[in-house]
């Protein structure tokens, strides 16, 4: 028999695959830079579509002036002049884009006020609503998923799954109306049904008025996230490394948290991102339902008034949220997956 020690030493010095010691920051910067460029490209394409779509909607002047359109040609001319509608489309597009980039999204046709001033607080209000909803939703959804996975195949799991599926099947306005009926009008009268922010004060100055909108969003979104995290948890719980952890005598709660959840969360991150992005659009209805002063209500009003500078700006804000959320989700996914992380670093 050959000498063990020399043999062992020889094998030990073999470099493991994928282990290269190089400054990782450079690689990361490169990767993020590339992703940011892609994000900008996406946003630019969005701007093109948004602008062309709003331009193709028809003559905004006719929409703004309504019956006056036919009777006062001088107002039509003035408005056309104000909106540069006689310039070629491309010129208008680039001038709009230029202003947008420099932080000037134009002037509202309906109110004559700067769009930035109009939507600024609205965007902030909506952002607070979405972030609060997400902060509540993520732990709740993951907690339910862990509970469900722990009781897999047993009655508790079955009940949770039926409830989740039912909630997932209900449109968010139905959930909102039910919640209003239960907590504000028909059954109980404990929570306000609408968000009344007096004198332009932000809605979070009266936190209790935010409860129902937040709960509605959480209930609308959590079931999807829960179901995905549960199914990836089940897959991970069947894996060899979870079995090994159990055979090592690691307590079940730690198996679940440290061994299973960490690996199961990655598909969840992508779903959370998708749901987040959906939230950015989905709040339109929820905000409308609760008269919440966010982008949703603004968007609905602007579309109704053919206030196309407002529509364009809001659409771009929503697009930016989509792009940003997905970028963040990709970064988080990679940070949570050592294999992907080390692949970038090397």
């Amino acid at each position: 028999m050959t000498d063990t020690s020399t043999d062992t030493a020889a094998l030990a010095t073999l470099p493991g695959p994928g282990v290269r010691r190089r400054p990782a920051t450079g690689a990361w910067a490169l990767w993020i830079g590339r992703r940011l460029l892609l994000a900008l490209l996406t946003l630019w394409l969005c701007s093109l579509v948004v602008f062309l779509a709003t331009s193709a909607l028809g003559d905004p002047v006719r929409a703004v002036l309504g019956k006056d359109y036919g009777t006062s040609p001088e107002r039509v001319a003035a408005l056309r002049e104000q909106l540069h509608l006689d310039d070629p489309v491309l010129t208008r597009y680039f001038s709009w884009l230029g202003h947008l980039i420099t932080g000037d999204p134009g002037v509202s046709v309906a109110s004559g006020l700067p769009v930035g001033e109009l939507i600024g607080p609205r965007v902030a209000n909506s952002a607070v609503l979405v972030v609060v909803a997400a902060l509540v939703m993520i732990p709740v959804a993951i907690g339910i998923a862990m509970l469900s996975a722990h009781y897999r195949g047993r009655r508790a799991d079955g009940i949770i799954q039926v409830v989740l599926l039912t909630l997932a099947g209900l449109p968010e306005f139905v959930i909102g109306i039910l919640l209003v009926a239960v907590f504000s009008t028909t059954v109980l009268h404990v929570l306000p049904a609408v968000t009344i922010a007096g004198g332009g004060a932000p809605p979070w100055s009266t936190p209790v008025s935010m409860i129902l909108p937040v709960v509605t969003l959480v209930v609308a979104v959590a079931p999807y996230v829960s179901r995905i995290v549960r199914s990836s948890l089940l897959e991970v719980l069947d894996s060899d490394y979870v079995e090994l952890a159990r055979l090592k005598g690691v307590p079940e709660s730690i198996v679940m948290r440290r061994h299973a959840l960490r690996n199961a969360i990655v598909p969840g991150v992508q779903v959370i991102a998708l749901q987040f992005a959906w939230l950015a659009g989905g709040i339109v209805i929820v905000e409308y339902l609760f008269s919440y002063p966010g982008v949703g209500a603004s968007l609905v009003d602007s579309v109704r008034n053919s206030d196309f500078p407002m529509v364009q700006a809001l659409a771009m804000v929503l697009a930016a949220v989509y792009v940003a959320v997905n970028l963040v989700a990709d970064v988080v996914s990679i940070l949570l997956t050592p294999r992907a992380r080390t692949a970038i670093a090397s």
Partner: peptide
């Protein structure tokens, strides 16, 4: 007792260690 008195060495080396730790 598991791990401390009676331990287990798994079959598939690639799959049995937690990829995230």
């Amino acid at each position: 007792m598991r791990g401390r008195r009676v331990a287990y060495v798994p079959q598939d080396p690639g799959a049995a260690l937690n990829p995230a730790i």
